[in-house]
């Protein structure tokens, strides 16, 4: 689980999936690389010529984008997250045996218990959107980690923005 998470993270940073704020996504490729030191020797953001196999977890992370971001103390799906979730829905339609868990996360600027509730609300918001796009609710589980599993280290606005996220994790049903 944790290794999977790490690799997801590394992959994320490669594609700088943070479509949230244009400025920050520019920063993210540089800083993200340094943050995930161990596995980031790969060339920068350009889409790899030889992509991961279609329908795999890697395919989902790299070519679809596994996460969306939220504003501080908010759980509504932002307009720039919609395209990511639409792509997720399309992908999930194509690979209809895939089941997923949506993780809700928060930044460190809240108390632990409140953030658990907030993370749950964020994960539910992502689930609701996917369901509204036709994905069966019984394929989707949600879990909140509150502020327990930051994606990016640092006590600063940029890191917090990266950590306020909903992450779609493939649970099963892939060929890989």
């Amino acid at each position: 689980m944790r290794f999977k998470f790490l690799s997801l993270l590394a992959a994320l940073l490669l594609v700088s999936a943070c479509a949230t704020e244009p400025e920050e996504s520019a920063k993210s490729s540089g800083k993200g690389a340094s943050a995930s030191a161990p596995s980031s020797s790969a060339p920068a953001a350009a889409a790899p010529a030889v992509g991961p196999g279609a329908g795999t977890k890697e395919d989902f992370v790299v070519n679809v984008g596994d996460r969306v971001f939220f504003d501080f103390d908010k759980s509504d799906i932002k307009t720039d997250a919609v395209s990511t979730l639409n792509k997720q829905a399309t992908w999930l339609e194509r690979y209809s045996r895939v089941t997923i868990t949506i993780q809700g996360h928060c930044d460190e600027r809240g108390t632990r218990e409140y953030n658990l509730a907030l993370g749950n609300r964020r994960a539910a918001a992502v689930k609701d959107y996917l369901v509204s796009r036709g994905i069966a609710a019984n394929r989707i589980e949600i879990i909140s980690y509150g502020k327990e599993r930051p994606a990016v280290l640092g006590s600063n606005e940029w890191a917090w923005a990266q950590n306020r996220r909903g992450v779609t994790v493939i649970r099963g049903g892939t060929s890989s």
Binding site: E113, L116, A117, N120, R121, A124, A125, I142
Partner: peptide, 9 residues
């Protein structure tokens, strides 16, 4: 305690 269901606690 709190119970969270479908995003509501």
């Amino acid at each position: 305690m709190s119970h969270a269901k479908d995003g509501n606690s």
